[in-house]
Design a protein around this nucleic acid. Structure first.
Lengths: 140, 140
DNA sequence: TATTGTTATACTCTATAACTATA
DNA sequence: TATAGTTATAGAGTATAACAATA
């Protein structure tokens, strides 16, 4: 009866991982939200701002600000979509890909630290369970 | 390589559960944050605002506003601590306990819906894993 | 007319700093 | 001097509404 609620646990799990990721990413000059955007933009086919926003489950107006920031840092570039000039294709720059690669290693380490209290099998199962609870947006 | 990050999964798990809990609690006239405060205040010994805040991992200034809201709704009452008049003892009213009981049922149903994609054993293991990742504040 | 990007704006949640009263 | 509650304020993160360009 005194067990903590699932909402509490998820909220604080989130907070704890953020607390690990923020400092971990500092050497890269990006925060965890920017890492999220960069990894979406860098890991598959070129996509528009709207597509990227939808894949992350954030609003397109939020994506504008995120891309602005990453562009100022020289990590992504905008160019018009050749077939539909309403759209911006947003892609990581060369430097952006380097940062993404390094950030990926740092994030993996942070996740590992976060999951350290769990045996490997339990950590894998936690991830699997969350994957099943959160259906992918379009592809994944 | 295209697997979604743990941060993404936790953030969206959080969001999905909130989306379920908000509407579920509407008949009670409270939101999920108020439910959290109410359940902390109702489930163990009487405690001060600061103790409640610490147990929830939120700031004492945030707790002021939460207790204000619950007090306006007639769900909790403040009274001075008999031995230390700097402290407020905050306790659910009779109506507050009724609301808490009903809200507890609604939240349990919302959690069940959230966890529906998982077999019972996996759902239990998810909760256990999160418990181990998030150390309790003082007792639990 | 609908969609994409953009801007301006507002809202939610939370914390920090400073004050009051008590200890 | 330190602690508990309070207030005023500010910041982060997000979304909504309205506009321009394009489809």
């Amino acid at each position: 009866m005194s067990s903590r609620s699932l909402a509490y646990l998820l909220k604080h799990a989130n907070a704890r991982l953020s607390d690990l990721m923020g400092p971990a990413l500092e050497p890269c000059g990006i925060d965890s939200r920017e890492y999220g955007v960069l990894s979406v933009l860098g890991r598959s086919e070129p996509m528009s701002q709207l597509e990227a926003a939808q894949r992350m489950g954030i609003d397109r107006t939020t994506m504008v600000a995120m891309v602005d920031g990453l562009e100022r840092k020289g990590l992504v570039g905008r160019r018009p979509h050749p077939a539909d000039r309403r759209k911006n294709i947003v892609e990581p720059t060369e430097r952006g890909r380097e940062v993404l690669a390094e950030a990926g290693r740092l994030v993996a380490a942070a996740e590992e630290e976060f999951l350290a209290p769990l045996p490997d099998a339990d950590a894998r199962q936690l991830r699997d369970a969350l994957e099943r609870l959160i259906p992918p947006r379009s592809d994944g």
